[in-house]
Design a protein around this nucleic acid. Structure first.
Length: 721
DNA sequence: AAGGTAGCGGTTTTT
DNA sequence: CCGCTACCTT
C-alpha cells in the first residue's frame, strides 16, 4: 500500500519543480530527507523516470539507507533500482568498471588513514626524506587536504610552511606507490572518476545518459571534486536538486567548500531556490537559542526558522569542578528525566567535541550499570585484530598490496622480521617482481633457516587462496584462512582478557562476512572489502536499541533525540583553542554548536568543567565557552551540581597542580545479601551478593524483570526498602 | 635477527 | 592514557 507523504506548501513546490535546477535551503529539522524522498517518489510515479535513471548522493551510508527504505515504502520494490549511495560508494562502483582507463586493476584496494600512514612512513624511511620535524600523520593530513580541495599544485617544496615542504617531497612518491600497490585512498575515490571522464569523454557521456536526474543531500559539505562530479554528471540534462544548510557546514577542515551552496545559482543558471523554514523538530526555546547564537556568524545566508510547537523548557546549564563531576552531573539529570518524564534510554544522546572526552562518561555509565553505545572512536574495522585478518583477505584479492603484506607477513609470528622483509624488498626491486613473488623463493637471495621457511609458508598460503578465490564464497574462504592460520588457538593460548576480546572480534568479522554473503549472494570478497572500507561506526548504530548514545557532534549530524546533553562546553575545548582567533574557523565551530543544539526535540543540557584533565595534568582554570554567552539569558537555566565528593587543587612539586579528594559527604550503611533496595532507574530489586565495604563496596542486584546489574554502592544511590 | 619492555611524545572533527 | 621507538635480551 503506497504511503502518501504529507508536505507543506514550500516542500510541495520544491518536490514538483522538475523542469529546472533546484536549490533547497533546508534548515535543521525542516524535513529535508522527507522532501528528497518525496521527490524521488514523485519522479518515478508522476514524471515517469525509471528508477535506475535517478542518482542520489549522500555523505553517510546511514542517510543513504534511510532514504532507500523510505522510497521503498512509497514506490515499492522498484525503489531498490534507484542509485542511492554515498559519494564514495558511487565513485567506487563507477571505478570498478572504468579504472583500467587509468592503468589500475579493478581489484584495487581502498586504503584508510592507517594504511596511508604506514605507506607514508615507509616512504619517508626508505627515501630518507628530510621531514623537518613534521610527523608522518601531519604529512598525511596535508596531502589529503590538498587532494580534497584539488590543490595538489599548492604543495611546494620551497613553501615557507614546513608541512607543505615535507608533503611536497612525499606526495609524488606516495602517488607512485599507490599505483604500484594497485590501491586508492579515500580522496582518490572522488578524484579518479574525474580523471576518467576527462581522459575519455565517451565514458562521461555514458553516465550522463544513464543518470537523467541527480539529487544531492548535505550539499553544503561537498568539496571541489564532488562539485565537479555533480556538475559533470548533471550538465547534460540540467535536472538536478540539491539540499543543504549553510549553517550546518562543518567539514571545511576536510576540504568542504561552503561557496558550492552559496554560489549554486552561478553554477546552475536559471535555478529555482526554495527555503524550508518551518521546523518540525525542536521547541521554540531551543530553536530561538540556536538561531540567535548562529546569527553571530557573518558568512551565512539569512533565514528564519519558526515552529508551531510549544515553548518548551529552558536550556539547562551546569558547571562542575571537573570532567568526573561533569559525568556524574549528566547522569543525575538523566536519571531525573527517566524518573519524572518516564523516558527510555534511547531518548538520550551525549555529544562532545572530541572522542577522548568519552572516557569519563563511559566510566560513570559503567559504574551505574547503564547500557550505552559509543559511536566513533576506534571503529570496529580499525581494530588491530580485525585489520590483521582483513589484510590477509585484501592481499589475496590484490596480491600487489604491499601495505597489507607487510602488516601480516609476520602475523601470527613466523620468524620474519624487519631485516628479512628488507631483503625481500631489495630482491623484488632488483628482479622487478612483486614483493609477494619474492617471498616464494628466499633461497634465491641466500636466506636460510626460520625466516626462509616462514616466507615460504606465507607465500604458499596466499598463493593457495588467491587461486581458490573464484571457487569459494567469501565466507568459506575467510573461514578457511582463519583455520589455516590457527588464529583461534593463537588468541586462546594467550589467555588474557584482551586476547579473548580480540578473538571475539575476529569471530564477529567472520559473522559479518557470512551475513554479507547471504544478503549479496552474487558477490564476492572484493565487494565485501569495498563495503567495509566505506563503512562507518554510525552505520551499525540504531536508535531503537535501548541504550544511551555517546558520539561527537560531527557524527550526530542528521540525527535527532528528545534529550541532548552537550559535554565539554569549556572555552578552549568547544570552540577548540586552535580555532579561536581565525574568524572563518571560529564560525565553523559555531555552526558545529548549532548542529549540536538543533539535534534536540525537547531538552538540552549544557555542561562545562572548570578543571578539565587533558593528557595527564590539569588543564588550567577553565570557564564557560563563549558560545554559552551567545545564548539569550532568558533561554538558560542554571542547575547546581550537588557533589557527593569534594575535590580541590593542591600545589604539588614543580608548581604543578594536583587534584586531591578532600572529603566524602555521603555516608552509607553497607548493604547485605538479601536486602531489598530501590534504584531510581531500575526500580525495586534484591541484593544478590556483596563485595567489600564502605567506599568500595560492590554489589550485584537483581531487579524486576530479571535485570541483573553489578553496581558500586557509592554511586548507585540505592534506597533501602 | 626476533621478540620483549621501558621511556617518550602527541592528540579534532571523518568519508 | 595509549601507541610507538629505542634499546636490551634470547
Amino acid at each position: 500500500m503506497p504511503v502518501q507523504i504529507k508536505l507543506n506548501d514550500v516542500q510541495k513546490q520544491a518536490v514538483e519543480t522538475v523542469d529546472k535546477p533546484v536549490l533547497i535551503f533546508a534548515g535543521a529539522g525542516t524535513g529535508k530527507t522527507r522532501v528528497l524522498t518525496a521527490k524521488i517518489a514523485h519522479l518515478i510515479k508522476n514524471e515517469k523516470y525509471s528508477p535506475e535513471s535517478i542518482l542520489a548522493a549522500t555523505f553517510t551510508n546511514k542517510a543513504a539507507g534511510e532514504m532507500k527504505s523510505r522510497v521503498k515504502k512509497i514506490v515499492g520494490p522498484r525503489a531498490s533500482k534507484v542509485n542511492i549511495g554515498t559519494f564514495h560508494s558511487i565513485c567506487a562502483r563507477i571505478l570498478r568498471y572504468e579504472i583500467d582507463e587509468l592503468g589500475f586493476n579493478p581489484n584495487f584496494a581502498i586504503y584508510d588513514a592507517a594504511d596511508q600512514l604506514s605507506l607514508i612512513k615507509s616512504i619517508i624511511n626508505s627515501n630518507k626524506i628530510p621531514v623537518d620535524g613534521m610527523t608522518p600523520n601531519a604529512i598525511r593530513g596535508r596531502i589529503s587536504l590538498a587532494k580534497n580541495s584539488m590543490a595538489e599544485s599548492k604543495l611546494d617544496n620551497k613553501s615557507p610552511s614546513p608541512v607543505d615542504r615535507a608533503a611536497a617531497l612525499v606526495y609524488p612518491i606516495y602517488t607512485k606507490a599507490l599505483k604500484e600497490n594497485n590501491a586508492l585512498d579515500f580522496d582518490d575515490l572522488l578524484l579518479f572518476p574525474l580523471k576518467v571522464f576527462k581522459k575519455n569523454p565517451a565514458i562521461l557521456k555514458k553516465y550522463q545518459e544513464q543518470f537523467k536526474y541527480v539529487l544531492v543531500d548535505e550539499y553544503q559539505d561537498t568539496n571541489h571534486a564532488q562539485f565537479l562530479l555533480v556538475k559533470l554528471l548533471a550538465e547534460k540534462h540540467n535536472k538536478i536538486t540539491v539540499v543543504g544548510d549553510d549553517d550546518q557546514s562543518i567539514y571545511g577542515w576536510r576540504g568542504a567548500d561552503i561557496s558550492n551552496i552559496l554560489d549554486f545559482e552561478k553554477a546552475f543558471p536559471g535555478c529555482k531556490t526554495f527555503r524550508l523554514e518551518q521546523n518540525y523538530r525542536s521547541t521554540q526555546t531551543i530553536l530561538s537559542a540556536a538561531s540567535t547564537m548562529v546569527r553571530n556568524n557573518e558568512h551565512r545566508a539569512e533565514k528564519e526558522l519558526w515552529t508551531e510547537g510549544i515553548a518548551g523548557a529552558s536550556i539547562g546549564l551546569m558547571e562542575t569542578f571537573d570532567e568526573l563531576e561533569e559525568a556524574e552531573g549528566i547522569l543525575e539529570l538523566l536519571e531525573r528525566e527517566i524518573v519524572n518524564k518516564k523516558r527510555t534510554f534511547n531518548e538520550f544522546v551525549i555529544l562532545y567535541r572530541t572522542n577522548a572526552q568519552s572516557r569519563a562518561l563511559e566510566d560513570a555509565l559503567r559504574r551505574r550499570g547503564i547500557t550505552y553505545k559509543i559511536v566513533g572512536g576506534v571503529r570496529f574495522y580499525e581494530r588491530k585484530e580485525v585489520k590483521d585478518l582483513l589484510a590477509y583477505l585484501r592481499l589475496i584479492v590484490n596480491t600487489v598490496d604491499t601495505v597489507s603484506l607487510k602488516r601480516v607477513v609476520n602475523f601470527p609470528p613466523r620468524g620474519v622480521g624487519v631485516k628479512t622483509v628488507e631483503k625481500c624488498e631489495k630482491y623484488s626491486r632488483k628482479k622487478g617482481i612483486s614483493l609477494l613473488a619474492s617471498t616464494a623463493d628466499p633461497d634465491a637471495f641466500d636466506l636460510k633457516g626460520k625466516p626462509a621457511e616462514g616466507l615460504k609458508d606465507f607465500n604458499s598460503l596466499i598463493a593457495k587462496y588467491a587461486e581458490l578465490l573464484p571457487k569459494l564464497s567469501a565466507a568459506e574462504l575467510s573461514g578457511a584462512v582463519v583455520d589455516e592460520l590457527g588464529l583461534v588457538s593463537f588468541y586462546k593460548e594467550q589467555a588474557t582478557t584482551e586476547a579473548t576480546e580480540q578473538l571475539a572480534n575476529v569471530q564477529e568479522l567472520l559473522n559479518s562476512i557470512d551475513d554479507f554473503c547471504k544478503e549479496n549472494p552474487k558477490t564476492g570478497l572484493r565487494e565485501f572489502l569495498e563495503e567495509v572500507s566505506l563503512l562507518t561506526d554510525l552505520d551499525n548504530w540504531n536508535q531503537d536499541s535501548n541504550a544511551i548514545t555517546l558520539m561527537t557532534t560531527h557524527a550526530a549530524k542528521g540525527l535527532e533525540f528528545p534529550v541532548v546533553f552537550i559535554a565539554g562546553m569549556d572555552e578552549g575545548l568547544f570552540p577548540l583553542a586552535r580555532y579561536m582567533d581565525c574568524t572563518e574557523e571560529l564560525e565553523e565551530e559555531r555552526r558545529l554548536f548549532y548542529v549540536a543544539l538543533t539535534r534536540a526535540q525537547d531538552r538540552v543540557f549544557l555542561h562545562y568543567a572548570t578543571n578539565r584533565r587533558r593528557f595527564n595534568g590539569i588543564y588550567g582554570m577553565g570557564y564557560a565557552s563563549k558560545f554559552i554567552h551567545e545564548i539569550p539569558e532568558e533561554n538558560l537555566e542554571r542547575i547546581t551540581f550537588r557533589s557527593s565528593v569534594t575535590r580541590k587543587l593542591v600545589r604539588g612539586k614543580a608548581g604543578k597542580y594536583k587534584l586531591k579528594q578532600v572529603r566524602t559527604v555521603t555516608n552509607f550503611d553497607d548493604l547485605e545479601r538479601g536486602d531489598k533496595v530501590e534504584h531510581k532507574v531500575f526500580g525495586k530489586g534484591m541484593v544478590l551478593s556483596v563485595n567489600g565495604s564502605g567506599e568500595n563496596q560492590k554489589i550485584s542486584v537483581i531487579f524486576r524483570g530479571d535485570i541483573r546489574k553489578k553496581l558500586i554502592a557509592k554511586y548507585a544511590n540505592l534506597k533501602r526498602l
